[in-house]
Simulated assay, not measured.
Amino acid sequence: MAVTDDMVGRMQRRVALLPGNLQGALWIALAGLVMTVMTALIKTVGETIPVIQILFLRQLVMTAAMMPGILRNPRGAFATDTPYLHLLRVLLSTVAMTAGFTAMVHLPLADAVAISFSRSFFVAIFAILLLHEIVGRHRWAGIAAGFAGVIVITNPTGAQIDGYVLMALFSAGAVALVMVIVRKLAQREKLATVITYQAVGVGLILAVPTILVWVPPTPGQWALLLCIGLLSTLGQSLNFMAFRVGEATALAPVDYLRLIYSTAIGAIFFLEQPTWSTMAGALLVILGTCWGLWHERHGNRG
């Protein structure tokens, strides 16, 4: 993990003199590329290795990254006043990652990434229902555009809705719930505690299923699996760095660069072309999100 820490440290020093939002935008853009490459590796390995096994080994690498802090202060690493929220987040994360990565293995990469953007629509809905956030007409317009985008993506007028598309949408909804829970945890928990519970908890849940479906990886697959864990850790670190120096409303649209990354990687390495309905739906979701964020950032919540 020292290699990853050194890489992040060098990059952080090089952009430290830039304005905060520009720093954050660079970190988000880089994190999106890192996570897209990670997803492409999961898609590659997932052709022969079960997704549950991939996720379990990914969690082992993440747990190894958190292990120095756990060993230094075991009680402090797991100290919390909200154990039930952590448990709920771990369960939802397990479901979201299993469904989402299964869909990514079977769908074109750009389609899967585009569908994942619908989480912004679900976050808005859950924030209203669970966090009682006040929503004006501009955010409602964005939510309506997001809903229309989800409808276009699922293409309900077709003869049959693709089961993997529904799985990807289900994952997006679960991720949205996780994000709402993280908002609540962030008010009272340390970041290290949140990551530790997620890394260890998901790994424990997946341990037995992994044993039942275990497929011995080849040496090349072991290397890819290690890269998946390292890239996941690096991507999460970059995202954290971004939101530590930049405003959420300024950084959120930058994440949509992942659609460009995934389209290019899918076309070059998997010979894939995203469907027009998925791209059109993703555009509606993106426009709806940016519309709401723009008016919120300019203080117009009406």
Rank of each mutant, 00 (worst) to 15 (best):
S120K: 08
H86F: 10
V113S: 02
H106D: 10
H106T: 09
T98C: 09
A112G: 14
F122C: 02
R119C: 10
T94R: 04
I125M: 06
F117N: 11
A141Y: 01
A141Q: 09
T94N: 09
R137Y: 14
R119M: 15
V135P: 15
G146F: 07
L88Q: 08
L109C: 06
G146E: 07
I134W: 11
I128L: 09
D111E: 11
L109Y: 01
F147L: 14
A124I: 03
A114L: 04
I128V: 11
A114S: 15
H132G: 07
D81Q: 14
F101M: 05
L92W: 01
F117W: 14
G149W: 03
T80I: 14
A144M: 11
I115G: 02
S93D: 10
R137C: 09
S118F: 07
E133V: 10
T94Q: 04
A148R: 05
A144H: 07
G149P: 04
V123R: 00
R119I: 12
L87M: 13
L130D: 08
L87V: 12
I151F: 04
S116H: 12
G136L: 09
I151W: 05
P108V: 06
I143N: 01
A103G: 04
H132E: 05
D81N: 14
I125L: 09
F101E: 01
A144P: 10
G136C: 06
H86A: 12
L85I: 12
F121Y: 06
A148H: 06
L130I: 13
A141P: 00
A145L: 15
V135Q: 12
T82L: 14
L131D: 13
L88F: 06
G142V: 07
V95F: 15
I134L: 11
Y84I: 14
A112T: 09
D111I: 02
L87W: 05
R119P: 05
L109A: 04
V123K: 01
R139V: 05
V113Y: 02
P108W: 02
L109N: 02
L131A: 12
V150A: 02
L130N: 07
H132P: 01
F122T: 02
F117V: 08
L87Y: 05
V90K: 04
H138K: 11
M97T: 12
F78N: 08
G146R: 05
L129F: 05
A144W: 07
H138T: 11
H138E: 10
A127I: 00
A110N: 03
L88V: 10
T82K: 15
D81F: 06
I125F: 00
F147P: 04
G100C: 08
A114G: 15
L107K: 01
M104Q: 09
R139G: 04
V90Y: 05
R139K: 15
T82D: 12
